[in-house]
Every structure is written in C-alpha cells, then in structure tokens.
C-alpha cells in the first residue's frame, strides 16, 4: 500500500486514489489518424521514473501529477 502525498490532504493510503496513467498527454483532436490513435491508446511504460497522474477520489477530489519510480515506487511531487 503506497503512501501518496496529496497536495491538499497530505499523505494518504493508495486505495483512496484513482490512478490516472501517464501525465502530460494533451488533448489535441486536430491531428491525423495515427497521432490520434497515439493519444487514445499509446502510453510509455518505462522501468524507472514515470510522470503520472493521480486523483484523490475518496478525499478532496483533486487531480495531480507526480514522478514515480516504477521499480521502487518512490514518489516525487511534480517540480
């Protein structure tokens, strides 16, 4: 059970949150089919640091993003 630091509520258990996948994927509908398919379906899956989104669904209902190391689960707030 990871401990996730919500910017509003402070550290809370992982099960209060919803995972939001990779961060920084901008909604840009005015692109060709291939780029649009990339927006819909293609995400990075690195071994190491990953910029990702979380939603504090059972708390303040804030979306935020962090950097998490996918091996150690170490988290750093977005700089």
């Amino acid at each position: 059970m990871m401990l996730i630091d919500c910017p509003h509520c402070g550290p809370r258990d992982e099960n209060e949150f919803t995972y939001g996948g990779q961060a920084g994927i901008a909604y840009t509908p005015d692109v060709d089919d291939e780029a649009w398919a990339g927006y819909l379906f293609m995400r990075d899956n690195p071994k190491g640091w990953f910029h990702e989104r979380w939603f504090h669904a059972h708390g303040c209902r804030t979306w935020f993003s962090v950097h998490r190391h996918t091996v150690t689960h170490e988290m750093r707030p977005q700089p």
Partner: peptide, 10 residues
Amino acid sequence: TAIGYYDDNY
C-alpha cells in the same frame, strides 16, 4: 505476528 511488509513501511 507481523506477516507482510509492503511499500512505504506498510
């Protein structure tokens, strides 16, 4: 009995 050790000292 402590049975499990998980992320973030849980």
